[in-house]
Computed example of a mutant assay.
Amino acid sequence: MRKWRNAVVTAAWVAVGTAAGALGAWQLASSDSDGAGGAAHSRPLDEAAVRKALTASTPTPTSRSTSTPPTSTPPASTPSAERSTVRFTGGSATVECRADGTVRLVSWSPADGFHIDDDVERGPGAVARLEAEPGDDDDQPDLPYEIRCAGGTPKVLPDGDDD
């Protein structure tokens, strides 16, 4: 009797595990909204898709409840800025060109075989600076860059500053 009971319990656990795995695989396969197969989250989004997703997730204003006191300080304002990604030998950077003509490095990422020096001048200012350094090759020179905004468009130039 005990062997029979152990066999039934084992079979039940195997059936539940198999059903859970099949359900998970089905859900993953059917989660792709355009029917191309695979998971929807496995493809990177382009800039337009990111903006669309952010717009869709922005909460709509609701009426204030009477228990929430109004704020007396206005929210901090920053100059409007347009973000874009610039690429250069040694990596890439996300840059804000602000309405007042200043530039600010939002983020940066080295290319394979490089790293970005810790001494980054991210702004905001007239110029932002960073330096891409080759990984383990002392024979290759470091690649300093300055980034400026001209007419709202970022420009990457080799940095001639010898500080």
Rank of each mutant, 00 (worst) to 15 (best):
W4T: 08
T58L: 08
G91H: 03
A49G: 13
A12S: 13
D46W: 05
K52G: 05
R83P: 05
G123Q: 03
S42W: 14
D162K: 11
S72K: 13
E47T: 07
G123P: 00
V95Q: 09
A25K: 07
V106H: 05
T68K: 09
S109C: 06
Q140H: 05
G101M: 03
A15E: 08
A22V: 10
V16T: 14
T94Y: 03
V9N: 13
V106M: 03
D112M: 12
K52W: 00
P110A: 10
G90E: 02
S42P: 07
S92H: 05
E96C: 08
S63D: 11
A111W: 04
D136Y: 07
T66R: 09
A40I: 10
K155L: 12
L143A: 02
A126K: 00
V86Y: 04
D137P: 02
P44S: 13
L54Y: 14
A11P: 01
D46G: 11
T94M: 07
P144H: 03
Q140C: 05
R5W: 02
G38F: 10
D159T: 12
C149F: 06
A99D: 08
W108A: 04
R104M: 01
G113P: 13
E146T: 06
A128S: 10
V95A: 11
E121R: 02
T153C: 02
P124D: 06
D34H: 12
L157C: 00
V86W: 05
R87H: 15
T66P: 09
G91M: 04
S109Y: 07
A12G: 06
T71Q: 11
A132H: 03
E131W: 01
V16F: 14
L157V: 04
T94K: 07
M1F: 02
R122G: 03
D34P: 00
N6F: 11
A20E: 06
M1T: 06
A12N: 06
A36W: 08
L130G: 00
D138V: 10
L105P: 01
D162V: 10
P69T: 12
V8M: 14
A76Q: 01
T73Q: 13
S109Q: 15
V50W: 09
D142P: 09
A7S: 14
H115Y: 08
T102Q: 10
S67I: 15
R5V: 08
E131Y: 00
A29Y: 11
P154F: 07
A56D: 13
A48M: 09
E47G: 12
R83H: 11
S107G: 10
C149H: 04
L157F: 04
E146W: 01
R51A: 15
V120H: 04
Y145P: 00
E133A: 09
A111S: 15
V50C: 01
V14F: 15
I147W: 03
G17I: 07
T68R: 14
S77L: 12
P134F: 00
A36D: 15
T66C: 02
G17C: 08
A11E: 10
A20V: 13
A7W: 13
H41Y: 14
D46I: 09
D34R: 15
T85D: 10
S109K: 14
G24P: 01
T10Q: 14
G160M: 08
V50P: 01
P154V: 05
Y145C: 03
S109E: 12
G35Y: 07
P75E: 05
S31R: 14
Q140G: 00
D163F: 01
T102F: 02
V50A: 11
A22M: 10
V14H: 05
A93W: 05
A7R: 15
